[in-house]
Nucleic acid binder design. Structure first.
Lengths: 344, 344
DNA sequence: TTTAGCACTCTCGGTCTTAGAGTGCTAAAA
DNA sequence: TTTTAGCACTCTAAGACCGAGAGTGCTAAA
């Protein structure tokens, strides 16, 4: 059975209402609040149909109806009211990009904070995949008599620095020479390209700088390990979730927070659900990972000319203000892409 | 009335038990579990005295006793069992400092994580006060044809970097000259010393580099503002709090999490309660800030030769495993001080 | 001074009950 | 044929009630 016009209106009303109130909705409520022009009894019949078709479910026999995941899916695919952001929201978002933030990471973090603030859901940001990240610049510079800084800049504009010891007999021009050698050998290489073998080759090339180079190599390699470990998942606004009735049960809240700490799970979930340059909605059990099955995730994959910059994910109860979240996410990623392509 | 030997033993038993169980303790339980050699009736009398003296209180008439803040204070001041860390704990702590972490900030963050893991309380770290922080090194370096990096290193070893644009006509030696000028003029200055006036002076000194310098100045000033805003308060392990019966009420949990987000409050609390090179315990209502009054905070102020490196704070319910927390904190700060003085 | 005994108090966890919301079905109305 | 009014039925949430259990304070005896 296809959904006719009237069924769709009723479904939309139920989902809208449930998203707003988190309470099961009965036929009478719909008749009263949404003016569909038919009696509760008729609505009841329609609701029974919708339930049979799998779009609704009942917590218990004598309760109202609640949207099922299939219901949400239909809603998201066909019924999303296009939500215009109001002036305040627009302004709040624009503000992030007005500020002179030159570093990509900071910009993204700030964007995540603002998204959480506007949506009241948890925002997760995840850096680009290691495989597509390569070194753009590597340099050793002296900051004190026997202390130096190893600087690495990737194609995504992320910068990492490590303090290193510089042996006594090294002059500034030695450092410059080492920098040059590292640069010519390593720029353009992805982190996974840089293996011990490659290091050994370079070492051979400049056998005279042996000792320092060894240290640099070690540090560099360690840093790689760090970058891979540091499962770059950052979340903000998690405490907001405690506001929702879905998390009133402390057990549920605890599960949510411990989930957030399992970065590998989160990474897998975001990666698997997001597609390049689109906003994707994953509802409850559509997520392969069971821990996430009573949450929804809206992901936006930010990329510029095939260059994957990272993923924003917004996590909330399945009863999520989808249209609002999507609008905000669209707006933010738009600005972000614009800013990055012009400024950075 | 002074506390005699027997009262003290009873008080200690009650507090130990309450810290372990979070349940009010009755006279019979004490007689059974702790072998003081007197009957419940006698214990009852003593407990009534202790209550009258303000060391205990009763949730309701027919419940057992619960320690009051005054009771905890007495316990912390006079009764703390000196707790030896076991091998596992020792090893876990040592491990942080074995790893080659060259940067102070990373080291401290890692230490905080370990403290949270071992204690199951929330650990807060707070950077040194801005007033005591000064520039040790400042430098502009090129990372791409028209992109440079402004590097600033402070006396605490913290490093901040900002990507800047480099105008076309600037050669590498220009950058070195600018770096030198900035260095001679700004190193040793605290962030608050560096005013616009000072910037103007430097600008005058090298009028020919005018334009770039202007940008650098702006960026530098902005960075200062950031550093001051970014109320450097970082907390870890907050989700652990949901395990405790004190936070089973979602309302309480929400309060706690929103408290954690009020960095200014936290900063004030940590600053006011911590003393140089000591571990301080602040119990419940001893804290001037009402939001913190049913929590306890143990703070450790880490400093080396008057140089204030920052504060660790451990927050938990007033029913906190004080001796354990103190031992762990002692151990960690010890190692930290040692590591910093030798390595960094 | 300590302790046994006892009446008393308060909470916590069940059971019971009722009001309310909502349903599905049937039969009448449109 | 479709819609709707009416009604019996179901289920939950909230309140009332009750008894067990833990703990107290007091009194009087050891």
């Amino acid at each position: 059975m296809m959904l006719d016009e009237r069924k769709i209106r009723i479904l939309a009303a139920i989902i809208d209402d449930y998203i707003a109130t988190a309470e099961p909705i009965g036929s009478r409520t719909i008749a009263r609040k949404y003016h569909i022009g038919i009696s509760p009894a008729t609505i009841r019949n329609e609701m029974a149909d919708l339930e049979e078709l799998g779009y609704l479910s009942q917590p218990h026999t004598s309760a109202g109806r609640v949207p099922s995941h299939k219901g949400y899916r239909f809603y998201v695919d066909f019924l999303l009211p296009s939500k215009k952001l109001d002036d305040f929201e627009q302004a709040t978002i624009r503000q992030i990009f007005r500020r002179r933030i030159n570093e990509f990471e900071e910009l993204v973090k700030e964007a995540a904070r603002v998204i959480s603030k506007l949506t009241s859901y948890t925002t997760i940001i995840m850096g680009p995949q290691m495989e597509t990240m390569f070194l753009k610049h590597i340099q050793v510079t002296r900051i004190e008599e026997f202390k130096g800084l190893l600087l690495m800049v990737t194609n995504y504009g992320t910068i990492s620095h490590h303090i290193i010891d510089i042996p006594q007999n090294f002059s500034d021009s030695d450092l410059i020479r080492i920098s040059n050698i590292l640069n010519t050998n390593l720029t353009g290489k992805t982190f996974s390209d840089i293996t011990n073998d490659m290091m050994d080759e370079i070492k051979n090339e400049i056998i005279e700088y042996d000792k320092t180079l060894n240290i640099l190599m070690e540090i560099l390699l360690e840093n790689l390990a760090d970058a891979q470990d540091n499962s770059q998942v950052i979340s903000t606004g998690s405490s907001k979730m405690l506001e929702y009735p879905e998390f009133q049960d402390v057990e549920k809240a605890k599960n949510f927070f411990s989930l957030l700490e399992q970065h590998d799970l989160i990474m897998k979930a975001l990666r698997s659900s997001s597609k390049p340059n689109t906003i994707t909605v994953t509802i409850g059990n559509e997520n392969p990972c069971i821990e996430l099955q009573d949450l929804s995730i809206v992901t936006a994959n930010v990329s510029i000319d095939e260059k994957d910059l990272g993923i924003f994910g917004i996590m909330g109860p399945t009863r999520m203000k989808y249209s609002r979240v999507i609008s905000i996410l669209e707006q933010v990623t738009d600005y972000l892409v614009k800013t990055v392509s012009t400024k950075l």
